[in-house]
Design a binder for these strands. Structure first.
Length: 534
RNA sequence: GGGAGAGUAGCUCAAUCGGUAGAGCAUCGGCCUUUUAAGCCGCAGGUUCAGAGUUCAAGUCUCUGCUCUCCUACCA
């Protein structure tokens, strides 16, 4: 295979490093400080004292050119010394003085200078043949340049790793979105914001765990490989297990296993679950995504509401306090054109209230709902001509009309969904005889996105079994193939599951909100990309 | 699934009505000990996403394919 001439030049420079007797790919190095810490360590008094003592020495030599070295004023050097590692971003060679700008995850740019006079001989020769993108380790005192930039005045320079790939444009960075996603390492090198978002994601996941553990929730891990993917209505990915000659699905939700743990006696559990859904992908959907599911024995959907509001507010405060988060508190977090307030109490409205506010009549008035659907041109009959169930008429209007009434700038809980839309939810007592019976379920909407639902969990095995059957009888055949009847789960409920609140939150979407990223791809290190033809 | 747009040097982008494919940065050679997107001088760098067609002539027009982006629809 032909090697591009730009790569060949870099290979030649690597050979030059080897010729210096250095290891081009480096070795273990202790006592490194980050570039941000190094920058902060600069001491102005020590730097001034050093400069003045140098001046005094020069002056003494000018006054008396024959003076013996021993009689010259001593050089004072109490400047802090640092050992740093970073990637070479800029390389300015002034001949006998070489300026390098380094980057690491803590600081976009940190200047080091290798001068022929003060740097070790091999280090200076190395600085001569460094390419943009190389990793280096530099050691030396901190000083300030005439133009006021804190600089490590290098006395020891060694290679840490060779970069054989030509760097992106030094000012514009890497713009090509496709390459940014496919070669994330290039993106992270060129665009430090990418790294910041991914680090924020990690910090948020960690803060989320601390929040839950503080309240005595324990983290568990349940199967990804499942005989029957359950807990949600979604098309699963299929795979095959050779040892048991068994077709398996990748999980679409952890719910049914987490509830089994409640049956077994774990009172408060959560799982950070990678879920896999064999469906479309767009700005807010990746085929594999991360949800947080939480179950609390003896809680209900209101318990989950309090927990969710506290969790999201805490995550918002964390994001706001990060560099570039733009604020002390979480009352004005930017998301696209919106400014979202996480500090104020979240909005709460019931499904029925929101429906009536948007449509002008009650969810129990089916005739008006059908008329409204006809008026708006929504379909009211299925393909074979039979009328669509009342509840789907209501929900069509809700999703198409009422959901848009929610203020995207205010986190909003929509409560008390129709029971028939929530098969794993406990029916709301006292609404059984309504035209539209309700269930203890809410959904939270932020920034125009649905972030997740919570329920008072259904723990009556007979109702659960009936709901499974209803669902399997389902609206149409294609959909019912993705719904399952989990007999063992019904058996678990027969053993007795405590009343409980359950919660599912789309963590990717929460990171999108907190990091002000409009695409799920920007909060995933490696989003799903179709392979290229070659 | 539907619609719109994009793909040109390592990177960021130009190229008028179809008429010799260009710039900046990076690289390479030379000079330079306080630069900051360093500076000055010089050189080089191309399968214009792939394939077919129209034409005297295609980066440009037509068709097919690939990938991406945006909008829209679907899906919890």
């Amino acid at each position: 295979m032909d090697i591009h001439h730009l790569e060949q030049q870099r290979r030649d420079n690597r050979d030059a490093v080897i010729a210096l007797g250095m290891l081009p790919y480096g070795e273990r190095t202790d006592d490194l400080v980050t570039l941000a810490d190094a920058h902060a360590l600069y001491n102005e008094d020590a730097d001034k004292a050093n400069k003045e003592s140098n001046q005094a020495r020069k002056q003494a030599k000018r006054d008396n050119p024959d003076i013996a070295d021993a009689d010259l004023p001593a050089i004072v050097d109490d400047r802090p010394r640092v050992k740093v590692a970073g990637r070479v971003m800029l390389h300015r060679d002034n001949g006998k003085l070489i300026w390098l700008n380094l980057r690491d995850h803590t600081r976009d740019t940190f200047q080091i200078a290798a001068s022929k006079r003060d740097c070790d001989e091999n280090g200076f020769k190395l600085a001569k043949v460094l390419d943009g993108g190389d990793l280096v380790i530099a050691e030396g005192p901190l000083t300030m340049t005439n133009t006021g930039e804190v600089t490590c005045w290098v006395d020891t320079l060694i290679p840490a790793s060779k970069c054989l790939v030509p760097p992106p444009e030094k000012h514009a960075g890497l713009q090509d979105t496709e390459r940014r996603y496919r070669q994330r390492y290039m993106d992270m090198w060129a665009n430090p914001d990418t790294t910041r978002v991914l680090i924020l994601r990690s910090k948020m996941m960690s803060a989320m765990r601390r929040f839950l553990e503080r309240q005595d929730f324990i983290e568990v891990e349940t199967p990804v490989l499942q005989v029957q993917a359950g807990g949600a209505a979604a098309r699963p990915f299929m795979t095959h297990m050779n040892a048991l000659s068994l077709d398996l699905s990748l999980r679409i939700a952890p719910e049914l296993y987490l509830k089994r743990l409640l049956v077994g006696g774990m009172p408060r559990v959560f799982e950070v679950s990678r879920n896999f859904r064999n469906e479309g992908l767009d700005k807010s959907h990746n085929p594999e995504f991360t949800s947080l599911e939480v179950y609390q024995a003896y809680g209900n959907y209101e318990t989950m509401m309090e927990l969710t509001e506290g969790l999201i507010r805490e995550l918002a405060q964390l994001a706001a306090s990060e560099p570039g988060g733009g604020g002390e508190d979480a009352s004005a977090m930017p998301f696209g054109n919106l400014v979202i307030d996480y500090a104020a109490p979240f909005e709460k409205i019931t499904y029925a209230e929101l429906f009536e506010k948007a449509l002008g009549f009650s969810i129990d008035e089916i005739d008006k709902a059908r008329a409204e659907c006809e008026k708006r041109g929504f379909k009211t009959k299925s393909k074979d001509g039979t009328a669509i169930d009342d509840i789907f008429i209501i929900n069509e209007l809700f999703e198409e009309v009422a959901e848009h009434m929610i203020d995207p700038a205010r986190p909003t809980f929509v409560m008390d969904y129709p029971a028939s839309l929530s098969p794993l939810t406990r029916p709301k007592p006292g609404t059984e005889n309504n035209a539209v019976p309700l269930a203890d379920r809410w959904d939270i909407f932020i920034g125009g996105m649905e972030i997740g639902p919570a329920y008072t969990e259904l723990n009556d095995p007979d109702i659960q079994e009936e709901k499974f059957r209803e669902q399997l009888a389902g609206v149409d055949d294609e959909e019912s193939t993705f719904r399952t009847f989990d007999e063992d789960f019904v058996n678990a409920l027969k053993v007795g599951m405590p009343p409980a609140g359950g919660l599912g939150l789309g963590m990717d979407r929460i990171v999108m909100l907190m990091a002000n990223q409009r695409s799920i791809r920007d909060v995933l290190p490696f989003p799903m990309m179709k392979p290229t033809a070659d």
